[in-house]
Amino acid sequence: MTNLFILQLLNGAQLGVLLFLIAAGLTLVFGIMDVINLAHGVLYMIGAYLIATFAALTGSFWLGLLLMLPAALVVGLVIERLVIRPLYARSHLDQVLATFGLVMIVNEGVKILWGTTPLSVPLPALLSGSIPLIGPLQYPVYRLAIIAAGLAVAAGLYVVVNHTRIGMLLRAGATNRDMVSALGVNIRKLFSLVFALGAVLACFAGAIVAPILSVDTGMGESVLILTFVVVVIGGIGSIRGAFLGALLVAIVDTLGKTFGPILLHYIMEPAAAGQTGRMLAPMLVYILMAAILFARPQGLFGQRAS
């Protein structure tokens, strides 16, 4: 049981860093630009499709990853210019409608461009295989690499946000947007930068998860809701909050999925226990969110609205 616990902690950490990569962009866009972007999951999907295409073209995962990053930046800038920018002055409802429409358009576009059959990305040879943990237990090297990559990005973001001029503007923007604008900062440029950064992070998440999952339309929607939970728990606009929120949500989710049914097995038949456990696991995340919001309505690291 301890072994299982350790394995599931690793799985939770892996899901957590993925959620963090997606949530980091979302929380900045939401916190600084005050835009609710339902299409953020779409960027995650685009990242996966981009690497599938580039990896197939170049025959190398690493080259694919390298080509994917500038392409993701372009995608982010184009979406910001065409769809998001006209929405800044509009109400949240308009933003939800427009970005939801964007989700549908991009999903259909992807189907037209790449077809309906799920694509697959081969594991890079360097990171394939698994390493022994304890006894018969093994853990895939690639999933460890995802954890490492996520932590590295988190560290990089920490340095940028806390120790650079741009990071200072980001933090200031999340706290009080109008004041930043009044101080003579080109807020439009800052918005473009924030959105593009978020897009690159989400695309990166989609790209590194592609060798584990099949690349499919609709993969974005599956993570979007959890990502919003992360953003709300962590506090809107806070990168640190997104990081801790993502790990918290992922570990609660993973452990709940496994140990929920196991505990329930003692009192129910397997199908019912599985069913109840499955229903309980996603609920745990929302119960956690409700509890945190009850204690801290602004989230773990959110700025209290003035």
Binding site: L4, N11, P136, R143, L213, T254, K257, T258, A271, G274
Partner: peptide, 23 residues
């Protein structure tokens, strides 16, 4: 062990961990 997964689930890491633990 008998596990029922969510229909449409794409990441099986938590189930595979159980299989690894139960051998």
């Amino acid at each position: 062990g008998e596990v029922f997964t969510e229909l449409g689930q794409l990441d099986f890491s938590s189930e595979l961990a159980q299989i690894a633990a139960f051998q």
